[in-house]
Design a binder for these strands. Structure first.
Lengths: 213, 213, 213, 213
DNA sequence: GATGAATGAGCTTTCATTCAT
DNA sequence: GATGAATGAAAGCTCATTCAT
């Protein structure tokens, strides 16, 4: 390889990087950078300036798109959850039977942890360290998520597949809590795919038997 | 009530307070004050000086008993869990049947949240906001707690009351997660006794059916 | 003087102050303020906030230009010494004869103490109270200063005016030590011009005879 | 060696240590410990509790013998200087000739640095870091020390060996400064015996020629 | 919209000193 | 005299946020 072509390649690579960078909105670039930085350093140890550097924008620019540091975390949560809910709905839609829907739901929840480790760290660990998120955030999206479960349960009850005395409003939280704790353990101990698969099976077995008519 | 008796009562009250204060070690007084202050203001918004004032000791005195602010939280967690584990063991000991043990366990876990609201706030919300706790703490006591559940499950499997293909190491976490999420919701929304009772019943029903042979 | 003209003068003075303030870089303003404050209160008794106030910048701004409090002292030392060395070189350059150069050097060293009393206090007293300066600082500039003396001595030896058995590396320190002690005494007892003049004469007489061939 | 005699030896050693410890007054033990600790850690980084531990006394005991931390340093300085002055007087007394006395003085000053490295570190570096010492201390002992030099010079002038136009009050400081700077350099760079010997010779040669009639 | 220099509030922790025993 | 548990004042530095350009 001669010097000429090396230089040419470098120019091409730079141009490609720039196109890629320009293709995304600054908003998205900041969110993606925040996920990386939060996952790497933790929420409280991440500096706005680091996120800005990672996103190749100025510190002040972040405040054109986000109210403050906690807001990045919360919007990140909402954005991700919105996408996840959409994906889950699509996945669930492939089944008619409520119990089979729940099975898909459980498997997919834990599969997401496996496939998005950075996001999982942020949602499982860092998010809960924001006082604003824990105390002030109106958890609309989170409630949407929980209600996905409640809906399936009610559907199952209508179908006669799930016991009528099961309280969807409570069981939705119990199931979420179970999945969440498994996800947290997976993230903190870096136990990955196998652990999550086995756990998904165990939880399916237990919950479905637990609420089946 | 006349002024005289008021003054007398005040004297008596002061004396009682002093006796109470002297009766406890400074260590215990600091821990109890920390629970109150953390529950009231949140971990990050609590000042060491507030805890010291509440415990009626000097700021510096706290550092004779604790390494730092996070250490207070962690020791508070360990102390509480140690007591809780002892109480749970005693409670469980009253039954021979594994499934009945689990039932007692579940009911008591949520009953503790009801009976110690301040402690519950700290353990459910504030504790998780300490980066040191989430990332550096070796969760020995927590594992002890989880293993209480695993033990009962293994016992039930030996008795033939619980399915042999249930994985105690996973189900213990799933059950804890479910209870924890219900506890968190109770704490954040200030839903108390009734919510916790109903939830305990629902979780018992679901889990016990879910793992029964 | 009437009130009218007083007010006018004040306006003029303020304007002048502002021009003066804007003309210098923040870096220089902070250094100059530090000299004043350190001289007035001593290094350990000076607060960063005082230096900031004197320089009319925010506390945090200081940390955009300096690593920490000790760094201000060290940079102050280096900046001053750099200027002093340049001036001394110019002064020395006016003579050809090594002994006459030394004479100029000695007189000028003590004259600087007389002309910059604040800086002298800082360099003689406060600088030595910084642990970082005494133990961690790599004294490049100071060595440059000492080597000015060594160079002149070597020159004198080449010229045959100074004994060949004089060790420049030791005598440079002995001469500096002598001047430094006189300077310190002048600063601590506020003995000024006359004391310094007489001392310069005495030291010249003694050193030059002491090393002359 | 059998176990029996080992135990016996240990008892004897302990007893000897205790006797040694008791033989010195607490005052002396604290001063000696302070020299060690200050030399090891520096004045500002030494804790009263460390000095107390080293001296095997309680923290509070130190305040029965010393006003405060700076007082330890100052009393340490005075104690040492008193001893040094006595030794120097004895040494000087061995000569009649003023110039020979000065020679002995210079050599002994630098020899003391060589022989008491810990003390030298404290007197050369740490002492100057005490604001109280630099600004409030009435330097009686130090003046005694300087006057030793002045006396010899006056003696030499009376003998006709030293020029009459030499100002003893200035030259004493110049000589001290020269010796002090060499001592400091030796301490900071850990250049020991050889450096100090050569320096002593150079300074003798220069000073004695410099002031000789 | 984008920048980044400047701001300044905010707080844990240390450790010399005291004093009841 | 000796102890050592308790005190509490004291301040450097960080970093989220602003705003003039």
């Amino acid at each position: 390889m001669n010097v000429h072509s090396e230089a040419e390649e470098w120019v091409v690579a730079r141009a490609a990087a720039k196109i890629h960078r320009d293709a995304k909105t600054k908003y998205d670039r900041i969110l993606e950078s925040a996920i990386k930085v939060f996952a790497r350093k933790g929420f409280h140890n991440s500096r706005i300036s680091e996120i800005a550097a990672e996103a190749e924008v100025a510190d002040g620019t972040i405040y054109l798109y986000f109210k403050n540091k906690d807001d990045i975390l919360i919007r990140l949560f909402e954005n991700s959850l919105e996408q996840i809910i959409a994906d889950l709905r699509a996945e669930i839609g492939k089944e008619n039977d409520a119990l089979r829907k729940l099975r898909r739901f459980i498997k997919m929840h834990l599969d997401l942890v496996n496939k998005n480790p950075n996001l999982a760290v942020v949602l499982q660990v860092e998010l809960r360290q924001s006082n604003k998120f824990m105390k002030e955030y109106e958890p609309t999206r989170f409630i949407d998520y929980l209600n996905l479960i409640a809906e399936i349960i009610r559907e199952g009850q209508a179908q006669g597949a799930i016991r009528a005395d099961v309280a969807p409003g409570i069981v939705k939280r119990a199931l979420f809590g179970a999945l969440d704790e498994i996800a947290l353990h997976s993230v903190l101990t870096r136990k990955g795919k196998d652990y999550l698969r086995t756990s998904a099976d165990q939880i399916c077995e237990m919950f479905l038997r637990g609420i089946a008519a």
